[in-house]
């Protein structure tokens, strides 16, 4: 077996590759549907119908996609600089914690001030959380993969303490949850009779902003350059460590905004199941989008369709809704392979 680089990669090949990969992933996961005794075509159709089959279903899917856009952008920005931020889950919760801390009645402000204030404060918290492993990386050469991963567990235990301890809402009938945020902190709904909220618009704005930032600003260029080659960047006079720190603040901030958005837009109060792994799914979203900020919007919609669809599919046919996690994981691996095959060809001889 020999691997050769393709001389020029056509645009068709590049755009077609992820589509083929997703199709292949679906084919692989069909085996699980067959095992559950369902016909795969019917299963996937049920999934699509559950996610996009009605007005309500579509708004639910968009609601689910909202935090994924934020965490997907967070992973995309960090991975561009080869900063392996796997701590999106922890940063998500820090955002939610800060939004609760500031937004649950300690003071009042009109909504047009309160909402930006909470998002900025949350983003700052998430950025600072990621700053710890990042400084350990730039100063002491501590590998950030493990430290960001372990911080997720620490943050989750911290939230556990908050909602069982000092922040436990006495009005919540004994459920472990914090007090809800005040009315002015609640993100307004976009349509009547749906849960889709202002956070979705904000997510789109962030995606476009990130795209512009990465593409057209010096700082964005530096992030891409450092990711492509730290040595060349240093040689060109870029402050590599400062660039990595900036990337960390941006990435952690974006992930934390997902937490603020979920807290103020969907749930209203802090609980331990605020995130069903949005931080980790963000990595899948970013990779499916090939780390492109606008692609993140598309891929987070796709992942949201899988999760919302899997819930209704699992109710319709007798199958565990872990099928959604399996499918997204297979999609991630398939897309990795497809991006490789778009760049290289394999010769068997």
């Amino acid at each position: 077996m020999r691997i050769e680089a393709r001389e020029n990669v056509s645009l068709t090949l590049r755009t077609l590759a992820p589509v083929v990969a997703v199709a292949a992933a679906m084919a692989v996961c069909s085996v699980l549907l067959l095992w559950a005794g369902a016909s795969p075509l019917e299963g996937w159709a049920l999934m699509l119908k559950g996610a996009l089959g009605s007005r309500f279903a579509i708004t639910e899917t968009l609601t689910r996609a909202t935090p994924l856009v934020f965490t997907g952008l967070a992973a995309a920005v960090a991975f561009r600089a080869k900063l392996w931020n796997i701590g999106g889950e922890g940063q998500f919760y820090i955002g939610a914690v800060i939004a609760t801390w500031l937004g649950a009645g300690s003071f009042e402000m009109p909504a047009y001030l309160m909402i930006p204030y909470l998002f900025l404060a949350g983003a700052l918290g998430g950025g600072l959380l990621l700053l710890v492993p990042t400084l350990l990386k730039t100063r002491l050469q501590v590998d950030e993969v493990v430290t960001t991963l372990l911080l997720n567990f620490i943050v989750l235990l911290f939230v556990n303490w908050l909602v069982f301890g000092p922040w436990k809402d006495p009005m919540a009938m004994g459920w472990p949850q914090a007090a809800p945020v005040v009315d002015s902190a609640v993100l307004p709904q976009l349509f009547a009779k749906s849960r889709l909220h202002l956070g979705f618009v904000l997510a789109l704005v962030c995606a476009m902003g990130t795209w512009w930032f990465m593409r057209s600003t010096v700082w964005g260029f530096e992030i891409r350059a450092v990711g492509a080659s730290p040595r060349a960047s240093r040689f060109a006079g870029m402050p590599v460590n400062a660039v990595i720190v900036r990337t960390a603040l941006l990435s952690g901030g974006l992930a934390a905004m997902a937490g603020v958005s979920e807290l103020c837009g969907v749930k209203g109060y802090l609980t331990l199941d605020l995130s069903p792994g949005f931080g980790y799914s963000g990595i899948v979203v970013a990779m499916l989008a090939a780390l492109h900020p606008l692609g993140v919007v598309a891929s987070s919609l796709f992942v949201a369709v899988i999760y919302i669809g899997a819930d209704s599919m699992s109710r319709a046919i007798n199958i565990s809704n872990y099928i959604a996690d399996v499918t997204t994981a297979v999609c991630l691996l398939a897309v990795l392979v497809s991006m490789f095959l778009a760049k290289y060809r394999i010769r068997w001889r």
């Binding site: 392996w84 565990s320 872990y322 399996v326 297979v330 990795l336």
Partner: peptide, 26 residues
Amino acid sequence: LGLSQHVTGLGITMLASALSSFVFRM
């Protein structure tokens, strides 16, 4: 194939944990 060891590893973790939960539930 020489793919990124970071991303592939995370993908493997996601796949293996999800499959274990899925099979257990099934």
